[in-house]
Write a protein that binds this DNA or RNA. Structure first.
Length: 485
RNA sequence: GCCCCCGUCGUCUAGCGGCCCAGGACGCCGCCCUUUCAAGGCGGAGAUCGCGGGUUCGAAUCCCGCCGGGGGCACCA
């Protein structure tokens, strides 16, 4: 049997890392088994629908390389893949349950329902539907229908016995039926609830493995009951744990980013995000951290999924992103970093020049966005903007602007005389100067560094100057000397 | 209130009865390399395996109880 999994978000907002990790696991499971992965939109709550949310879901998946074989945008043998376009299917299935006496119409008003709940809570009883309409007489029922009373369809949960559920990660979990109530499967507006829609669709779409958040575990017996009522075989269920914030609370905006796409804006590589997410609740072995996508697909195994919640470790993600950046070719790094630089500069940047700089900065940046800080000075014309004190530093030249200015003059003279403007020649010309001045080479370099980069921490000095070119380097050196005079 | 899930270094994790007085990774601290910052190399601190009972020659690993954390109990998903 072909493995078929799905990601079925509701379009109520931007997908966050937890959603995406579940999608990733489902996708990996399908890929590992040569099966299919599908995208289904569960928009059965018209109140909570958020404009653009469907597109955000798809954009996130595309960014991460999680592709789907069937979905709302590309169709497939079980189209449509948007639940609001499948209403007749759910209504038909609710009708079947009504016909087989597995469901009944309920006319209770929401006012009555909340009063019942309130009373139950006051009596410290579990809040649940009191089954008021379950045993309505045929006469009463006919009367309500004749009155045109709005009605929902409720599932007729067995009053006793127990429902045995099975979770691939946790094993068998029995639920006593008397802890369950008669839940709504079709709302009065004709829309199905999750319980009906998800089960019907998973069956019709031939889903073999359902991976979803663990918040669904307590609904599992309801879902198993629905499968039984229809006489269908349930798929394999695996409930994935949550991702928590650093304070062990549910991941939210308070923990910085939680929408997956904001990591793209922050300069994270999709392959790093995928690798990192895969390792939250799953592991390859006892030591491997960096795992490319093909290895991930080849090794992914549902049995190695963990059931305990994982705290999101932003520092580790940052480290991992750095690893992936360092493994990028100069051209690739340049291509990916380009938008960030252009965005910050507000003008186009030469990709080739960036590629030339890439080797100098790749082990110094953790995110693509860091190029702005680390390499921005390569792309600005003329002198830089910095405090003159920065040039003097905290060592030999501290409080001695005259000496620093003199040193810069010597450097300018030595460097001006060079025939070839490359880093070996530059270093050959400048390094001996330090000894003549009686300062350590590093201290002299520090002065030059600030002059040409405007920063105390920068890529290797002479390689930087080589890329900067003769004119710009000399211009900045002179400007720095002028600043000290 | 009822039901369910979870509990190994700060964090992500390995472990599925002896290889573990618990291994790897991030972070942290040293040292080395070095023109700065990184990267890299080496080393270090860091876990009474939530607690208490059992079972066993032997338990992080199996069983029971407790505690702690989380989730669910909607005409939301």
């Amino acid at each position: 049997m072909t493995v078929r999994t799905r990601y079925a978000p509701s379009p109520t907002g931007d997908p966050h890392l937890g959603n995406i990790r579940t999608a990733l696991f489902a996708w990996l499971l399908a890929k590992h088994n040569g099966g299919q992965f599908l995208l289904r939109i569960e928009d059965t709550d018209r109140q909570r629908f958020v404009e653009g949310a469907v597109e955000a879901q798809m954009e996130t998946l595309r960014w991460l390389g999680i592709d789907w074989d069937e979905g709302p945008d590309k169709g497939g043998p079980h189209a449509p893949y948007t639940q609001s376009e499948r209403l007749d299917i759910y209504q038909d299935h609710a009708g079947r349950l009504l016909a087989s006496d597995w469901a009944y119409r309920c006319y209770c008003s929401s006012e009555r329902l909340s009063e019942v709940r309130k009373a139950q809570q006051a009596r410290k009883e579990p809040p649940r539907y009191d089954r008021h309409c379950r045993d309505l007489s045929a006469k009463d029922r006919a009367q309500r229908e004749a009155d045109g009373a709005p009605a929902v369809v409720r599932f007729k949960t067995p009053l006793d016995g127990e429902t045995l559920t099975h979770d691939a990660l946790r094993g068998e979990v029995p639920f006593a039926n008397d802890t369950l109530d008669d839940f709504v499967i079709l709302k009065s507006d004709g829309y199905p609830t999750y319980h009906l829609a998800a089960i019907v669709d998973d069956h019709l779409m031939e889903i073999t493995h359902v991976l979803r958040g663990e918040e669904w575990i307590s609904s599992l017996p309801r879902h198993v009951l629905i499968y039984q009522a229809f006489g269908w075989d349930p798929p394999v269920f695996a409930h994935v744990s949550r991702i928590l914030g650093s304070d062990r609370a549910k991941l939210s905006k308070r923990h910085g980013a939680h929408a997956a796409l904001t990591y793209r804006e922050m300069g994270y590589l999709p392959e790093a995000i995928v690798n990192f997410l895969a390792l939250l609740g799953w592991s390859l072995d006892d030591k491997t951290e960096i795992i490319d996508i093909d290895t991930l697909i080849g090794a992914f195994d549902i049995d190695r999924l963990l059931t305990n919640p994982a705290v999101f470790n932003a520092e580790k993600l940052e480290w991992m992103n750095g690893v992936y950046i360092r493994n990028l070719s100069p051209e690739n790094l340049a291509e990916r970093a380009l938008p960030f630089l252009e965005g910050a500069l507000g003008r186009p940047v030469d990709a080739q020049k960036l590629a030339q700089i890439a080797p100098l900065i790749k082990e110094r940046i953790k995110t693509l966005k860091d190029v702005v800080e680390m390499a921005g000075f390569f792309f600005t014309e003329g002198p830089l903007d910095y405090e003159p004190e920065l040039i003097l530093g905290k060592k030999s030249f501290a409080g001695a602007p005259d000496r620093a200015a003199q040193a810069l003059a010597s450097v300018i003279a030595a460097v001006e005389a060079l025939d070839d403007w490359n880093h070996e020649a530059l270093e050959g010309a400048v390094r001996p100067l330090a000894e003549e001045m009686g300062v350590k080479a590093g201290e002299l370099f520090a002065v030059i560094r600030v002059a040409v980069t405007g920063r105390t921490a920068a890529p290797p000095l002479f390689e930087t100057m080589a890329v900067l070119g003769r004119d710009l380097s000399l211009e900045r050196l002179s400007a720095a000397r002028g600043l000290l005079a």
